[in-house]
Nucleic acid binder design. Structure first.
Lengths: 205, 205
DNA sequence: ACCTGAACACCGTTCAAGT
DNA sequence: ACCTGAACACCGTTCAAGT
């Protein structure tokens, strides 16, 4: 990738640290990730990361934030790809959400495991999460405007739909009771859960 | 509670350790819980806990297991309290699940945060979790037998219902986007989500 | 400006030794 | 049988010092 360092200065240490941390995260989980090991893998001393991140939490925040941006992108694609079809939009957005989450177990645990409940130091992380969740809101809102979905109010329906999608991802990841070995099986379950919710919020004629 | 120790022998150190750990858990979370601090609060040396637990994970497992037993009890009560009424059973079981979980944030994060994905050393933990989840299965199975609920098969319907209930609890706990400050608000949202699922799986006449 | 090396206060875990 | 105290190998974080 890059030829031997000529000085003790690193080219782009911040990026190298994030990449090393992402690798270590999927290998050992957030609890087993040590900043010293990250620094070692990036080829610097254990104190060097503090030039780029205030502390360990700040590095994990950066990884979580990048995760929300990518998840957001995937859900947006499902929205874009199925215009004027709220039921399919809901199913495809849900499938994208659950597939993305289950493909990256440790990253998802980091993002969804309650790291966001801390001090509002990192507004960027909250903004990235907000943006990802925004697309689910739009799917429901558009469906209600089109007269396909009903329910008492948009917020209530969003909570129901998002709970089902998010819950399925968490159960596959953490419960050990909902087995979905292949990506196809994950997608099948996600579609099933989304269709059940769609049946529950659909206006009947 | 107990009068001064006469010897360096502790009366029931195992129990004391669990209680100290439970307190520390809700105060600082699983990541901030140290075995040395638990030992200090129980009034023993930092090596003493190893007489009763193989390692830190074993202590956390014991706490998680007790949690599943209590959660199971609450869901079972909802089942018992509403015989021959699957729709109400589902709603009340869901409300019990979400309320219990949100009342004990750190304990629930410990139980549901992926601790169970480890080696099958602790069969007791898995059995306790299995038992808790069993009641949701029964609610759906009974509802399908009674001709109230439909769906392709019981397993699929259970996954949809459990996903919605579990997902709501996780979103309230971890997302920072679904706010439910009071127990009443939590119960209202849980009932709403359960009713949406019930609408989705109900057989229509 | 960017990184190093030593230092500090913590960890989990082990083990010989005490009662 | 049950607990202690010292010891080991790790942590995260800080900071004077180097280039």
């Amino acid at each position: 990738m890059t030829f031997a360092r000529r000085t003790y200065h690193h080219g782009d240490l911040r990026r190298s640290l994030v990449e090393a941390a992402e690798g270590l995260l999927e290998e050992r989980g957030a609890a087993g990730l040590s900043l010293r090991e990250v620094a070692k893998r990036a080829g610097v001393s254990h104190a060097a990361p503090y030039r780029h991140f205030h502390d360990k939490a700040a590095l994990l925040d950066a990884i979580a934030q990048a995760g929300f941006e990518r998840l957001s992108e995937r859900v947006r694609e499902a929205w874009d790809g199925n215009p004027c079809d709220p039921r399919t939009q809901l199913r495809e957005a849900g499938v994208a959400y659950v597939c993305w989450a289950t493909e990256r177990p440790e990253r998802t645990r980091l993002m969804m495991g309650g790291m966001m409940r801390e001090d509002p130091l990192c507004t960027c992380l909250h903004a990235a999460a907000e943006d990802a969740f925004q697309w689910i809101f739009r799917v429901i809102d558009e469906g209600r405007s089109a007269g396909v979905f009903g329910g008492p109010d948009t917020r209530s329906v969003v909570i129901s739909a998002w709970s089902a999608v998010h819950g399925l991802a968490m159960l596959i990841l953490n419960s050990g009771k909902v087995s979905a070995e292949t990506p196809e099986e994950v997608a099948r379950l996600a579609a099933l859960v989304c269709d059940t919710v769609a049946d529950g919020i659909q206006i009947r004629h």
